[in-house]
Simulated assay, not measured.
Amino acid sequence: MLKERLKLPKDKSLPMVDYRKYSGVRRWTLGLTGYKDQIAVIRASGSISRVRGPFSTRGTGIIAEDIIEKIQTVRESKKYKAVIIRIDSPGGDALASDLMWREIRLLADSKPVVASMADVAASGGYYMAMGTGIIVAENLTLTGSIGVVTGKFNLGKLYEKIGFNKEIISRGRYAELTAAEQRPFRPDEAELFAKSAQNAYKQFRDKAAFSRSMHVDKMEEVAQGRVWTGNDAASRGLIDAIGGLSRAVAIAKQKANIPQDQEVTLVELVKPSPSLPEILTGIGNSLVGADRILKQLLDELAVSDGIQARMDGIMFQKLEGADYSSPILTMLKDYLGSF
C-alpha cells in the first residue's frame, strides 16, 4: 500500500531506518523544536524560603532547594548556551538567598548568566541577581534593599486572650532565644540578635561589593537597606543595563557568541502546577487549629535564626494580589476576630 501511494514499482525495496537510530536524531535538525541554540530561562518569583513549608505547594514562591536543583541541572547540561534568571521577589530567608547566590556564581563560571529583574528584585531577590554576570532591570524595577531584618513575635498578650499557656524547659543561656515567644527579649538576648543581624548585613554588603566589583565603602553608600528604581540603580552601579526580557536575551546571545540576527530557542524551566491532591492537602492544612497556625507564624521567623533578607515593610504585611502573600496572617486575623 505504501509503495502504491508513493507510486513506486512493486519490485523496488523501500529504504528502512531503524527506530533506535531515528530516535537518536536531534529534533532541531528536523525543525521540530525551534532553533538549534538554546537559552535556559529560570523563573524565580515570590518570597524566598529554604524548603517547602506545610502550607506551600509547588509553584508557591521561591523554594531554594527547587531553584538550586534547576541551576545544577542547567550547569551540567551542554545543550544550553546561556541562562537567564527572571527574578521578581522582595526577598525572604537570608540563608536560602545565600545558598542560591553561591549556585548562581558556580553556574556563571561555566556559561553566561544574565539576571532579568521584573517588578521587584529587592534584598534576597537582589542577592540572587548579583550572583550573575550581568543584571538587567526595568526603569522602575524596585532594586537593592541590601539589608537584613530580624526579630521575633511577642505573643504574651495573645496567649492571655485565648487562654494559652506555654512552659519551656531549657539548658543554656540562649536556648530560649526563639522558642520563648510568650515574652520579650532579655537585654542580653536582644544584644545577641543585633550582633547576628549586623554580621549577616556585613556578609550581604561585602558579597554585593565583590559581585559588583565595587569597593565596600562605596557599596555601603548605596546599601543600608535602601531601595532604588532601575534607573537610579544603574547610575549607582547596582545593575548593568535597562530593559526587559528581550534585552536580557540579546545580552545572553552576545555573551554566548550567538549572532544577534540568529534566532534561539528559549527553554523555560517551568514549575509544574499543583496537582489536585496537593490543592486538597493545602485546603486541609488551612483548616487546622489555632495552635498550628501560631506555630507556623513562629517558624517563619525561626528559620535561618530569624534573619531575613527582605525589603522593609514586606515582612509583616500582606500584599494584595501578590503570589508571595501569606494566608496564615489572614487566618490568624479571622480567628482572633471570632472572640
Rank of each mutant, 00 (worst) to 15 (best):
F153T: 00
N154E: 09
N154K: 02
L155K: 04
L155P: 14
G156I: 01
G156K: 03
Y159W: 08
E160N: 12
E160F: 09
E160I: 01
K161I: 10
G163F: 08
F164K: 10
F164C: 04
F164T: 00
F164Y: 15
F164M: 14
F164S: 02
N165M: 03
N165I: 10
E167A: 08
I168P: 01
I168S: 04
I168T: 07
I169M: 11
I169W: 13
S170H: 13
S170C: 06
S170P: 00
R173I: 06
Y174F: 15
A175W: 09
E176W: 03
L177F: 12
L177M: 09
T178I: 01
T178H: 13
A179W: 03
Q182I: 03
R183A: 13
P184R: 00
F185Y: 15
F185M: 06
F185I: 02
R186D: 07
R186A: 11
R186L: 15
P187D: 12
E189D: 08
E189Y: 04
E189N: 08
A190S: 12
E191R: 05
E191A: 14
E191Q: 10
L192R: 13
L192N: 06
F193Q: 13
A194T: 12
A194H: 09
A194W: 00
A194N: 11
K195Y: 07
K195C: 04
K195E: 14
S196R: 14
A197C: 07
A197M: 06
A197L: 07
Q198D: 15
Y201D: 12
Y201M: 04
K202A: 09
Q203R: 10
F204W: 06
F204Y: 12
F204G: 13
R205E: 15
R205I: 13
K207M: 12
A208R: 01
F210K: 10
F210L: 13
F210T: 10
F210S: 12
S211E: 05
R212M: 09
R212Y: 00
M214W: 02
M214P: 10
M214T: 07
M214V: 06
H215E: 13
D217F: 01
D217M: 01
D217N: 08
K218E: 15
M219Y: 01
E220N: 10
E220G: 15
E221P: 12
V222P: 15
A223I: 07
A223G: 11
Q224L: 08
G225F: 01
R226Q: 13
W228Q: 02
W228F: 15
T229Q: 05
G230Q: 03
N231W: 00
D232P: 02
A233V: 02
A233E: 08
A234H: 09
A234I: 05
A234R: 11
S235A: 10
S235P: 11
R236N: 15
G237Q: 00
G237I: 01
L238M: 14
L238I: 03
I239P: 11
D240M: 00
D240Q: 01
A241F: 14
A241R: 12
